[in-house]
Amino acid sequence: MPDTNAALAARDLSKHFPGVDAVSHVSLDVAPGEIVGLLGPNGAGKTTTLRMLAGILSPDTGTVHVAGLDIRQHPLEAKRRLGFLSGDTQLYQRLTPREVLDYFGRLYGMPDATRRPRIEALVAQLDMTAFADRPCGTLSSGQRQRANIARAFLHDPHVLVLDEPTTALDIISGRFIVETIRREKAEGRAVLFSTHIMGEAEYLCDRIYLLHRGRVVDQGPLEGLLERSRQTNLTDAFLALIGEPVLAEGV
């Protein structure tokens, strides 16, 4: 049974693609107001796991509950409570951020009375006024990512699933995103995000899941991971836990 307190709960998720077991028996929980990191090398199954959690890929086995709703049985209701962002979720190049937000607001079933003020609030909050009416195709990657975040936050979801949200961003834009995530936590949202950047994970995460070859190799708060791996930083702990040699002190 899923943890009834969890905003996001996955049990025994598996996904097989021709020739590869992308994800095997992964279970995880994220509580409201908690930031959970999903760490793993390339090909560990992070993106596949997150896609299954967001309901855009069906697992072969296992269940996903979003705010207590089974995503298979109630896909539309579950998606309404979930915001998803990844490197593959881009915006329409010939539409402006405001038009994109309006489009998704309609798809999320937000009435005019709440959709319009919400879009204006997000444009102001994410500092998008300067480019909100320019076609997305003409924006910088940092501007695009802000518009994308606005899109994921638009319908005020209980759960945020973010797949490497800061990849390909400069330091300033990356920092802006990280601070935005912290703010969302403070508002009681459950956040699950994957990243390559260990510093981000150390700074943000309440708990961390380590994923390797489609399986969860360890999970828990940062301190626990360091203790179990007998390392002093997350990078070394990560390498030790997935069975790779830790090269030298302080890497």
Partner: peptide, 9 residues
């Protein structure tokens, strides 16, 4: 953008 659309309900 296809995946973006698939996130929506």
């Amino acid at each position: 953008t296809m995946q973006t659309l698939l996130c929506a309900p």
